[in-house]
Amino acid sequence: MAVFSSPRQVRSKSKAGKQMHAGPVTYAVLIVFTAVSLFPLIWTAIAASRTSGRLSQTPPPLWFGANLFKNLGTAWTDANLSQALLNSAVVAGSITVGTVLFSTIAGFAFAKLRFRFKTVLLMLVIATMMVPPQLSVVPMFLWIAKLDWTNHLQAVILPTFVSAFGVFFMRQYLTQALPTELIEAARVDGASSMRIVWHVVFPVARPAMAVLGMLTFVFAWNDFFWPIIALTQENPTVQVALTSLAHGYVPDESVVMAGALLGTLPLLLVFVVFGKQIVGGIMQGAVKG
């Protein structure tokens, strides 16, 4: 009980104050940024609804044309997107689960537990982020070919299954967000480390896990540089499949854009699911009662 007498925790009992409501200026600013953020995606849809030739004309089209469903259909069948979407869901889903899970427990250890070589190991994690990715592709492929994983999904899942970015992110977040007193209290109760992770760390980490999940999913979904080497059109992810759309000496840009649109829409769905997880008041829930 002593834990909860720390002044910061006691004060957290009341609900969020009125001053936290947003005013019209806030909405105005957010709407402007939202418009700038969404414009290229909306324009992708406009481009996908036109013909390829129209996209070269000036001024470029700013409103929807009549060919959206025709182009979407062409892109869907030409790029064999049904299998690609399934593969991408498996790849991005697995990488997201692996990254979020392993990053959270490792971040927790680095933030709140004491062990030898901690600082050195953390520095090592950060140092691995500094390796430029473009070049690893050649040795990585030699390695994957040796394992005989070419064209198999594990070739793109396992190399990015954990992420230094995620570990570092979780460590910084939990350093701030997880009161050491909570862990102490759990220890006093005789909780094992696994129980602490489950009952204390995960609830507190939820907003950060949601954000890390979103970022990781997008990264894995849109990753192109490595999958294009490791996979072929026989077993592609969405990004690999989409490169097959531009065929002939005159690639049909509107179909390419339709493919890009089909490849992006599932992400929005994932965002809504994750976005709802970033809710306030986690601290209050975990501590107060």
């Binding site: 592709v137 050649v138 492929f141 030699l142 994957i144 070919a145 040796k146 005989d148 070419t150 064209n151 080497i229 490791a230 072929t232």
Partner: peptide
């Protein structure tokens, strides 16, 4: 890259 590894 594929030729170098003899794979893919």
């Amino acid at each position: 890259t594929h030729l170098a590894a003899g794979s893919g």
